[in-house]
């Protein structure tokens, strides 16, 4: 077993893991953060997207051992206590989710986009989220929710 100490959503965590465990496994099974989902295990679907040192990665393709000393961000860290993040509110308003499997990954990826580019156009949102597959919504509502949230966040600052 490998000992890993890491930071998740700002909190220090320690766990023991098998070398084979991915960061996704460790988040879900060791730290009980079940927001990130496994859709494929091959980097194709984006349901497992989390931040590693601030950048979106597929946590199914990162070994848990590699998280040592790194900062991990998951969907559980997006809301401020009971207050939903504007992206989360807009996803509900626009009905940008149905089954919800893809939603945690998309929220994490979209938040990272808006931090880098507070005023993206539709094409930029679509390209940024190209690695996040959704079998339910047809994407349009997701894109509209992200653009709407971006607008609201710009007004707020």
């Amino acid at each position: 077993m490998i000992h890993v100490s890491t930071t998740v959503n700002g909190d220090a965590h320690e766990f023991l893991c098998d070398p084979r465990e991915t960061l996704l496994d460790a988040l879900r099974d060791r730290l009980e953060l079940t927001g990130a989902k496994e859709g494929c295990g091959t980097g194709d679907c984006g349901a497992c997207t989390v931040l590693l040192d601030g950048r979106p990665v597929c946590s199914c393709l990162v070994l848990a051992a590699e998280a040592k000393g790194r900062e991990v961000g998951t969907v559980e860290g997006i809301a401020d206590g009971e207050d939903l993040h504007p992206l989360q509110r807009k996803f509900i308003e626009h009905a940008a989710l149905q089954c919800g499997i893809c939603t945690p990954g998309i929220l994490v990826a979209a938040k990272a986009l808006l931090e880098r580019n507070p005023d993206p156009n539709e094409t930029e949102v679509r390209y940024w989220l190209a690695g996040n597959l959704c079998r339910c919504t047809g994407y349009d509502k997701i894109i509209r929710a992200v653009l709407d949230a971006a607008g609201e966040m710009r007004e707020a600052t």
């Binding site: 980097g43 984006g46 950048r55 979106p56 990665v57 597929c58 990826a109 690695g131």
Partner: peptide
């Protein structure tokens, strides 16, 4: 090359 998350790794 792939998409954002893959390009980051």
């Amino acid at each position: 090359v792939a998409h954002v998350a893959i390009r980051n790794r």
